[in-house]
């Protein structure tokens, strides 16, 4: 079974527990036909090729190697293409186990985006407007990860307009606190905001660069603000390497 399909089954289980607007994917897919599987594979290959071509992205791994163990990739957010490009640049084995966390309001619009989010890269959609205390996004993310998947998150919470890193939201800290075994891998995205700036829908094929840095962990007793600024710095310093 393809991991994305597995993720869907898992989410079907979690659906019963979570509030309806919180679930990552639709509750059940009744019939998984061969045609739809082939279509998904083709779409996946197409989208990976497209993302790599349009972003002209080169991946740099600095003191970090691609691996299938559980990770949270956290990156600066510059463009709608961010998650897609990072996901596409991972080697296939890692890609199959990695799910981007994305905004529900953007990825549920139209016909193409929901299909891509659900079937092609198994995105974990988070409702930005309707956050409840007892079903926080952090809980949802950790439950969806299980003991198998990795996530791509953007702790700034939104796209920056001037290319500077904003303050990180606290979700990353709570993830690290609840699951101290996860590797937190900083990722820096360079120049992708020029490929697809805010408010544009047609990408211009410039060259961008994605840098993966050495993983960080939450230190014992480290305060929230100290950890978040350390995480932010770990992304920022990749720009100058």
């Amino acid at each position: 079974m393809h991991p994305v399909t597995a993720a869907r089954d898992r989410s079907a289980v979690s659906y019963a527990l979570a509030a309806p607007h919180m679930t990552a994917t639709a509750p059940t897919i009744p019939h998984e036909t061969l045609t739809s599987r082939l279509l998904e594979t083709a779409a996946r290959m197409g989208i990976v090729g497209f993302a790599r071509f349009i972003s002209g992205a080169g991946a740099r791994w600095i003191n970090c190697q691609p691996d299938v163990n559980q990770r949270i990739y956290f990156a600066n957010h510059t463009s709608h293409l961010d998650a897609l490009v990072i996901w596409s640049l991972l080697p296939p084995q890692c890609r199959a186990l990695t799910r981007p966390v994305a905004a529900r309001d953007y990825w549920e619009k139209g016909r193409v985006r929901p299909y891509l989010a659900k079937h092609v890269f198994g995105a974990l959609l988070i409702d930005r407007q309707n956050i409840k205390v007892h079903q926080s996004p952090v809980d949802l993310m950790l439950r969806e990860m299980g003991d198998r998947y990795s996530l791509i998150v953007f702790p700034e919470g939104g796209r920056s307009t001037d290319g500077e890193l904003q303050e990180f939201k606290s979700g990353l800290y709570y993830c690290a606190k609840k699951r101290p075994d996860l590797e937190l891998v900083p990722v820096h995205i360079d120049n992708l905001n020029r490929v697809l700036p805010r408010g544009e829908f047609l990408p211009v094929p410039l060259l961008s660069c994605i840098t993966f840095g050495p993983p960080i962990w939450l230190e014992a007793g480290e305060p929230k603000t100290a950890f978040l600024s350390r995480a932010r710095e770990s992304v920022r310093r990749l720009r100058d390497l």
């Binding site: 002209g56 120049n191 700036p197 805010r198 047609l202 211009v204 410039l206 060259l207």
Partner: peptide, 19 residues
Amino acid sequence: LREFITLTPTRTADHRTLF
């Protein structure tokens, strides 16, 4: 051309022109 434009500073308003 990708390399050239990547190197030179353009502004967000130039996006459609570049397209």
